[in-house]
């Protein structure tokens, strides 16, 4: 089942085409990687899906519903979870409270002024934290977490929305190789269990070729290749503009 469908989206900044006529779709339970050189338009592409940027043309549909140009807030409401390249969590709250706030937003219980926040959705938050392996750290301040743990927390926050689509922007940036694989395997398991479509950008080729079902390659704003690992690896254009010889990326 197709969750996200992108049809011919384009975006220019000051006359420079950042993204040109890009189309693709992601199915439920599928892990789709978006790769390409720095400055190829990956971030712009991502921002058009999550509502940060409105496309100049083209259409984005989520489960058959047109979400082109909606605000990030509306897009979250329609079931899109996100993790950020540079983690964004609430530093003055504990790990559990971070998830609780996301649950309060998801269940539309934000406008409550009396009953203390800790009494809302505590068990549900703990359940999500257990799923990402963060149960033991639930009472710690989010501001003091190690980087890898922040990434897991972000995943739990994204899951609080019971998302149909999960957007992960360079999810393993700044992590150690072992943690990278662990995090993305976790994302993969969650995606297949819950039928979540996952779209992620990534520069670690071990991760990309290890977990992605399908790979899209963007160069200078255009989609230059699409396919599974072996197909992308043997694509001469992709090798030239992005993969190189593979000497410093594990032979991919």
């Amino acid at each position: 089942m197709t969750i996200l469908n992108v049809a011919g989206i384009s975006k220019s900044f000051g006359g420079v085409r950042a993204v040109a006529d890009v189309s693709f779709s992601v199915a439920a339970g599928e892990m789709l990687a978006l790769i390409g050189p720095n400055g190829a338009g990956k971030s712009t592409c991502f921002n058009m899906l999550n509502g940060q940027t409105a496309p100049d043309s083209g259409r984005v549909t989520l489960q058959g519903r047109d979400i082109t140009g909606l605000s990030p807030r509306r897009i979250w409401r329609l079931g899109v979870g996100r993790t950020f390249q540079i983690t964004a969590t609430f530093a003055s709250m504990t790990v559990r409270e971070n998830v609780q706030v996301a649950l309060l937003a998801h269940h539309r219980r934000v406008w409550r002024f009396l009953r203390p926040a800790f009494a809302w959705f505590g068990a549900e938050a703990d359940g999500l934290l257990a799923q990402v392996g963060m149960a033991e750290q639930a009472s710690r301040a989010a501001g003091v977490l190690a980087y890898g743990d922040l990434k897991r927390l972000e995943l739990a926050i994204a899951l609080a929305n019971a998302p149909a689509l999960l957007l992960m922007d360079e999810p393993t940036a700044g992590m150690a190789p072992s943690e990278r694989v662990a995090l993305m395997r976790l994302a993969r398991d969650l995606a297949s269990q819950r039928g979540i479509a996952v779209l992620f950008t990534e520069h670690d080729m071990d991760v990309v070729f290890g977990v992605a079902d399908r790979i899209l390659v963007l160069n200078r704003g255009e989609l230059i290749a699409e396919g599974d690992g072996p197909a992308i690896r043997s694509d001469a254009r992709v090798r030239a503009v992005y993969l190189g010889s593979g000497a410093t990326s594990g032979g991919h």
């Binding site: 360079e170 080729m205 030239a240 992005y242 993969l243």
Partner: peptide
Amino acid sequence: SEGLAPVIVE
């Protein structure tokens, strides 16, 4: 090498 395309890392 963090966050760089493989060809740039080379």
